[in-house]
Simulated scan of single mutants.
Amino acid sequence: MGALSPWHMILIAVVLLLLFGPNKLPELGRGFGKMFREFKDATNGNAAASAEEKRESIEAPKAELVSPSEPTAPSVNK
């Protein structure tokens, strides 16, 4: 069995129209759209936060090596 054909989608639309009515369908569509947007934002936010944490953990040791707490004078070998 393959993907949904246009006839399957028409049948699903008719059943939804009969179950919920023409006034309720746009409200349901907006609700599903909002739900998917919030889910997408939450998953992208978590991915961005974890990437930022990784970047900070990598940059933190480099910052310590670049800026020592006390400057040292060059040693002169005699």
Rank of each mutant, 00 (worst) to 15 (best):
A49Y: 10
N77S: 12
V14Y: 05
L4I: 06
A63S: 14
S5E: 15
V66Q: 04
E59C: 05
E27K: 00
A47D: 14
K78C: 06
E52A: 07
E64M: 05
E64D: 09
G33V: 02
P71L: 13
S69P: 00
I12R: 00
D41L: 03
S69Y: 13
P71S: 12
A73T: 11
L65A: 09
I10Q: 11
F36N: 08
T72F: 05
V15I: 15
A13P: 00
M9L: 13
N46P: 00
P6Y: 02
V76S: 05
S50I: 09
V66E: 14
P61H: 02
P71G: 07
K24W: 09
L11V: 12
S75R: 10
I10S: 12
K54Q: 10
K62I: 15
R55P: 03
K40R: 12
E59Y: 09
G21F: 03
K54G: 05
N77M: 09
G21C: 00
H8G: 03
A60I: 06
G29R: 01
I12H: 03
N23E: 15
V14E: 10
A51P: 01
G29I: 01
A48M: 06
A60L: 06
P61C: 01
A42N: 02
S5G: 08
D41V: 04
A48E: 15
L25V: 05
A42W: 11
S57F: 11
G31Y: 06
I10L: 13
H8S: 03
F20Q: 00
P26H: 02
P68R: 03
E70K: 03
A60V: 04
M1E: 14
G21A: 01
P74W: 07
A51G: 03
E52T: 10
W7I: 10
A73N: 07
N46R: 03
I58L: 07
L16W: 10
V15D: 05
E27I: 08
P61L: 00
G31W: 07
N46Q: 13
L65Y: 14
L25S: 01
A48D: 10
E70L: 04
S69W: 08
A3E: 12
E52L: 03
K54Y: 12
S69E: 15
A63P: 01
E53T: 09
A42F: 08
G21I: 02
S75N: 13
T72K: 09
E38F: 05
S50W: 09
S57I: 04
P26T: 02
E56F: 12
A60K: 04
A49S: 05
K54M: 10
P71R: 11
P22A: 11
I10T: 14
L65F: 13
N23P: 00
A73I: 10
M1D: 13
V76Y: 06
N46H: 02
G29S: 05
L19Y: 12
V66C: 02
E53H: 06
A13I: 02
N23M: 11
E70V: 15
E59L: 12
L11S: 14
G31D: 10
